[in-house]
């Protein structure tokens, strides 16, 4: 009689086959898929480029700043870059549908630019990266953060050193 219970269950539940591509596919929340890059929160440390086993990430210096490129067609979705990124600027989304025709092969790129800026103190040209403030005590206010960010690395160090710490 076992087959009858199975039959009844199947009638009730319907087929186990996923509807995709005729319907939405089940996608786990934390599926390791396409890489996403947020230039605003990148520190420019280039650790992600170093730890990427497939050399999918490449930074390049251009007249406008530093560009970030991640080629999805050589990325192996290991998540190393996200794991080592100190600021969560690089993030692995759960987007897995990267199927494309071969003509678009080299367009499957996540591109970002960390622009150049003029330092608010000394006027030197430097990258507008996110400042490293993990160890700053007490934590910076939003206004302080903006001031710090507008400076070049040397002036940032000076700014943090001269910061008045209320005791």
């Amino acid at each position: 009689m076992n087959f009858l219970t199975i039959f009844a269950r199947n009638l009730r539940q319907g087929p186990q086959t996923e509807a995709f591509p005729l319907g939405p596919a089940f996608t786990p929340e934390r599926l390791r898929g396409r890489i996403e890059f947020k230039a605003e929160s990148c520190e420019g440390c280039r650790i992600c480029e170093r730890v990427c086993p497939a050399n999918a990430i490449r930074f390049a210096k251009t007249p406008d700043g530093m560009t970030f490129d991640c080629w999805h067609n050589t990325c192996v979705f290991c998540g190393n870059c996200e794991f080592y990124c100190p600021t969560d600027a690089i993030h692995q989304t759960n987007d897995w549908d990267l199927t494309h025709v071969n003509a678009d092969k080299f367009e499957m790129v996540e591109h970002g630019l960390i622009p150049n800026q003029k330092c608010a103190d000394c006027g030197a040209t430097a990258l507008n990266t996110a400042p490293v403030i993990k160890n700053a005590k007490p934590p910076l206010s939003d206004a302080e953060y903006a001031e710090l960010r507008a400076r070049c690395p040397k002036c940032r160090a000076k700014y943090l050193k001269n910061r008045k710490v209320p005791s």
Partner: peptide, 27 residues
């Protein structure tokens, strides 16, 4: 491989999940 064999559809992933392969086959 497209230096040697003409390729029409690419399904990136390492490995791609079955749904992605189905999407590639559909294309």
């Amino acid at each position: 491989i497209d230096q040697y064999i003409p390729i029409d559809v690419n399904v990136p992933g390492c490995p791609p999940r079955p749904q992605a392969i189905i999407a590639g086959v559909a294309k």
